[in-house]
Simulated assay, not measured.
Amino acid sequence: MTTVAEHRAAVRGLVESHWHPATEVVPLGAALGRVLAEDARTPIDLPPFDNSQMDGYAVRSDAAAGPLRVTGHVAAGDPITSFAGGAVAIMTGAPMPVGADAVVPVEAVGTPGDFAAVGETIELRQPVERGTFVRARGSDLPGGSVLLEAGATLGPAQLGALAASGLSTAPVRARPRVLIVSTGAELAEPGEPLRTGAIYDANAVSLSAAITLAGGIALATGVYSDEPGHLRLALEAAGPVDLVVTSGGVSAGAHEVVRDTLEPLGVRFGSVALQPGGPQGLGAITVAGAATPVLCFPGNPVSSLVSFELFLRPVLRGDRPMLRVPLAASVDSPGTKHQVRRGRLTDAGTVELVGGPGSHLLAAYARSDVLVHLPVGLSRAEAGETVEVWRIDE
């Protein structure tokens, strides 16, 4: 039986040996959630000039306590000026006059918001140190420095940093096109009447959403049949894609359409020491004339999503945020398998399990915000014992 770590490595090796994403340059407004393809450097110092951190007065740090004559007034957006001595009224974000090296908050010399006019005096109560309330040029990052490294996911802060550097575009990795094939004669399309013995297809929707959130382009189709010929036709009809993900039909029983269709093509099937999600398959098949990696997940909806989280998402988007959290209650686990339970973080700083270990409990998964990992060798964890959890509430 393959370990989770071994299968994770095999999936990464398979996908990365076939998928070599091109680089696209996109406007920042279209780059949210994209992955940076190369290092981004700031062409300017951040900030680009010394500026005031406070509303106050720009002074020299060698000024003695006592009266200082107000010699100017600088607002944000004004050009850089030369310091004419005394004190210069200055607003937050305004450029420091050349020659001044500290700022005295306005409330330290008078009433907040009440600035002395040019020609009037303020009373400096005590000397100030050089650099007080001054945002120094390049103190965030000097020009030419790496602002973001390749592989960074572009969220609000990252896009803001690029914009603050004057950059209007970003080089990002092209999104992988992922064909999702949900299989099984027992499946019905959501919204259609449910015949006796059938269940609605949840995997096409959930895996498509998971692929999209991980930065891919999901192309979903359903093969609601256990006939290998129907699956072959679906694959032959697909256009060029970077990856194929199937769900269902991977176990060792009868009517396993994915295994029956793809095993003769060289796709390997076997068991991973994982619960849920033990049956897995991987290999390369020809799609639209090109060798294309295929990952075969189990059909139970929780097994399918857990398989995505453990094996494919790390390749597309990176590892989930991980925490070590104490259990709210004790739990048993099969010691020979890595069990993944669904859970919810509590206000008390613990994690409580939601639902049981069953691979069909999708509603319980939907109410969860973490995956709880119980590794091989652990048969019981007591309340208060810390376990690894992955945040999934993105």
Rank of each mutant, 00 (worst) to 15 (best):
D260R: 13
G85D: 07
G229A: 13
T92H: 14
R342H: 10
A157E: 13
V103E: 08
G278F: 10
R259M: 08
V88A: 06
E120Y: 01
V250C: 02
H73K: 14
L14C: 05
D101R: 06
V370F: 11
R380Q: 13
G72L: 08
A328G: 15
T169D: 13
V376K: 08
V315P: 00
T246H: 04
G278W: 05
E189K: 05
D50G: 05
P298D: 06
A63W: 13
A234H: 04
V354E: 09
G184P: 02
A220D: 04
V70Y: 03
F49G: 00
R317Y: 11
R195W: 10
R380T: 12
D332C: 06
E309W: 09
P27D: 12
L361Q: 15
P228C: 10
V223E: 06
A185P: 00
A209M: 09
L295R: 00
L361K: 06
L327N: 04
V172H: 04
A40P: 05
A185K: 13
A383D: 01
L36G: 00
V59A: 08
P43S: 09
P264T: 06
G289L: 01
V98I: 14
L28N: 05
L147R: 04
W19A: 07
A150W: 03
D260G: 07
P67M: 10
V302L: 13
A290D: 00
L235H: 03
V88W: 08
G191F: 09
V340H: 02
A75S: 15
T212F: 01
L147E: 06
G248M: 06
V70G: 15
P375Q: 02
R195D: 14
H230V: 11
E24H: 07
I80H: 03
L327R: 02
P334F: 03
V387I: 11
V74P: 09
V74N: 11
V205R: 14
Y200N: 07
E394N: 04
T3S: 15
L187Y: 10
G77V: 08
A214Q: 01
P21R: 11
A108L: 10
G335W: 05
M322H: 11
S17L: 07
T246F: 07
A363K: 15
V15W: 03
T111Q: 14
S271G: 04
V178H: 06
A65K: 13
P193E: 01
G77Q: 05
M54D: 14
E309Y: 13
V4M: 14
S139C: 12
V372R: 03
G249P: 02
G56W: 12
S17V: 04
A40G: 01
R367G: 08
G99Q: 10
L213D: 13
A40F: 14
E309L: 10
L46Q: 14
A100M: 09
V98T: 12
V11G: 00
A116P: 12
L353G: 00
A150G: 15
A363W: 13
G216D: 02
R195V: 08
V302E: 10
T221W: 03
E385L: 00
S182P: 01
L187I: 05
V325H: 01
H20Q: 15
A363S: 15
V11K: 13
Q53S: 12
L162C: 03
V294K: 01
P47S: 06
A170W: 05
Y224F: 15
A188V: 07
T42A: 10
E149M: 09
A204S: 15
E309D: 06
